[in-house]
Each structure stands twice: as C-alpha cells, then as structure tokens.
Write a protein that binds this DNA or RNA. Structure first.
Lengths: 189, 189
DNA sequence: GACAGTGATGGGACTTGGTCTCATCGACCG
DNA sequence: CGGTCGATGAGACCAAGTCCCATCACTGTC
C-alpha cells in the first residue's frame, strides 16, 4: 500500500477552493487548508510558493499559447494566429468537464482583491508569451503587442461567457467570435 | 513650533524608495522604513494599507483620466478622447520635475514581482476608469474596452520613453505619438 | 536478509507583514 | 485652567512564509 495518499497538490487545491467558498479567502488559514487535505503547512508551501498560488495551478498555458501561435498557418495574420492559440487553449484547459470548477474558482477570484492581483500578473505573463510568439513569426513588435492585447481582451470576454451563462458552447467558438467582435470594435475612428 | 515634522506620508515614501534602492524591496522591513522617516510601524500602516502601497501614492489618476475623457470635444472619437486624457495626466503627474523620481520608482518596481503585481492591479483600475468614462460618452462597451486597452498600451509605451532615454520631451506629446502608432498597428490584417 | 539511500512528509522555531487597542501629549479652544 | 482633538507611539497578537532537521516506508544492493 502506498505510504501517502496520491496527488497532494490536487488535494490541497480542492480543499482550498472549498474553504475559500465557505469562509472567504482571508478567513481561511493555510493550516486549515492543509488539515482538510490531510497534510501540514510545511507540505502546502512545498507545493505552492504562497497562499494565492494554490488557485493558479495550470502553469503550462504560456507554452500552449506560444505553440498555438507558432503552429498557425504561415499566411495567417497576427489575430488569426491568436485565434488559433485560444482555440488550442480551449481544447486543453477549458473543456466541458472543467467548466464547473472554473466557475467556482472565478467566483472566488472575483471576490478578493489579493487574488485578482495575482490574476492580473498571470495575464501579463500570458500576454507577453503571445507577443513573443508573434514576434517569432516576424510580426513587428508594436503590432504584436496590440494583437496580444486584443487577444487577451477576447479571451476575457469569451471566458466570461463560457463560465457565466448556461451556455454549453465550447470555449473555442466563443473565443473566435469574441475576437471577431473585438476586431470589429478596433475599426473605430 | 509644530509638534511633529510635516508630511509623514511623504517622508515614509521617500525613505522607502531610498531603502528599496539600497537593499532591495524584500530586504527592507517596514520598521526600517518608519525609523528612517523618524516614525514607527504604527504610523506607517496608518497611512498605507500595506508595504507595497507606499510606492503607489498618487491615487487620483483615475479621476483625472475620467475627467480628461469626459471633457474631450463631443465630436472626438474614443481614441482621441483617450489621447486628451493621457495629455491631462501628463500635465498633472508626469511633469519634468517628477521624472527622476519616476525613473527611480520604476526601476524598483521592475525589479520585484510583488510590486509589478500591484502595478498590474492599478492598471486594471485605470483601464476600467477609462472604459467607464468612454461609456458615459455613449461609446459602445466593447469599443470602449478596446480603446481603453489601446490607450493603456500607448501609455506604457510613452511612459517607458519618457522615463528611459535622455529624452526631454514632455509626456503628452510622447503619448499622442505612441497612440498614433498603436492605432496604426491596430489596422493589421 | 540486513542496510544504506531516497523522497515525501511532519514538526517547530523564527522573521515579517498586518491588525488592533490603548496610552501619550502638545495644540487649540472655551 | 481644564477638556478635547489629532497625530503619534507602544506593544500584544495572528497569519504568511522561510528554514532546518527528523521521520519512516519504500527501494535497490550486496
């Protein structure tokens, strides 16, 4: 028999989300999270650099975004490449079975400034990943930045929709449509 | 004679910047900052909600941005209104005499994740202010968001230039030019 | 089959950020 | 003269985060 229960980080993340929902982020201590997961504070900080990070596990999004952009057809424009990347993201991370989890997680995030702050930092990283990947396609820097920003805006838009309504549509199509709308809005005077 | 030295928050901010430059953000304790300012930890937290915030004093930017957008000529498009707002910001906050301070502050910010995180949150607030102000002008929501994002991008661009090079140009003109470039880059395929 | 190494975990001391409550004491006012 | 006000100080207290060392089942080796 295994000496330890498997997937300590996963258990910690699940326990944290439960407790944050029940008592709020700031009324939950790391010790309580660890105890609910059958672990200790030491183990918590072995897996997560700080308390916030327990809600930001899937850190491979940067790579996936970059890949998605790199593998877009050579003739594709910057925004098309971004659309492909968002699509790839949707297929890997925003699958139907994770929708409920995402919804719960996002509700907690929205409720606490400290967590929205971390989210903002993550988004900067993701935007930077997209910008760099576009740069590697030969897109001029400023254009790349604008495209990445617009892509992030479309992402937020699509994510809200994907999470929010009873909408059962996949993330990919929602993102493509959001990006089209953003592109249209960008044609203002 | 006054019982206390004047401008406690200002002295705390100045002491903090000095110490962060000398020893780094994380190697500086709040107690050290307070002592250098001739105060105590209690007083520090009376003026600043946390250690990061000591570098983010001027919190009236939101209002100024909103005003700038509101008072743009009625015929002006969203991005023109944003340009006016950035101009107003430049006249009030990014004056020549604050350039050196801004440079030092930004160097510290760039060096510490915790501080860049806070900066990201502030930017979200500023972008939201612009979006709302544009909405009050009758700009459709999505268009407003895009314009605000592009404005923020131009801001970052102009700010880097204003701070970085020996460039003695004012912030306003730099921002206008940056916004023009961003606008051009937004016309991609 | 004994034994040393490994790796995930626990335990607890310690520093610092941040909160809270109460004390202090000059200035100001009636 | 006495009372209030307002900015500050003092210190207890809690939780986040760091560090170092102990534990102990599993694993491979001789």
């Amino acid at each position: 028999m295994a000496r330890w229960q498997p997937d300590a980080p996963g258990r910690l993340a699940a326990a944290a989300l439960d407790l944050f929902e029940e008592h709020g982020y700031e009324n939950t201590t790391v010790i309580e999270i660890a105890e609910r997961a059958g672990l200790t504070k030491s183990t918590f900080f072995r897996y997560f650099p700080d308390k916030r990070e327990v809600l930001f596990g899937g850190g491979t999004m940067n790579g996936l975004l970059a890949e998605g952009i790199a593998s877009a057809p050579p003739a594709a424009g910057p925004l098309d490449a971004v659309a492909d990347a968002l699509d790839a993201l949707g297929r890997t991370f925003f699958t139907a079975d994770r929708r409920e989890f995402s919804r719960r997680r996002q509700a907690v995030l929205n409720a606490h400034t400290e967590l929205r702050e971390r989210e903002a930092l993550k988004r900067i990283g993701l935007t930077a990943s997209m910008t760099e990947a576009l740069g590697r396609r030969g897109v001029p820097d400023l254009t790349a930045r604008v495209a990445a920003q617009l892509g992030m805006l479309a992402w937020e838009f699509a994510y809200d929709q994907w999470i929010g309504t009873g909408n059962s549509e996949g993330f990919g199509p929602l993102a493509r449509q959001a990006l089209a709308e953003v592109r249209a809005a960008g044609a203002m005077r």
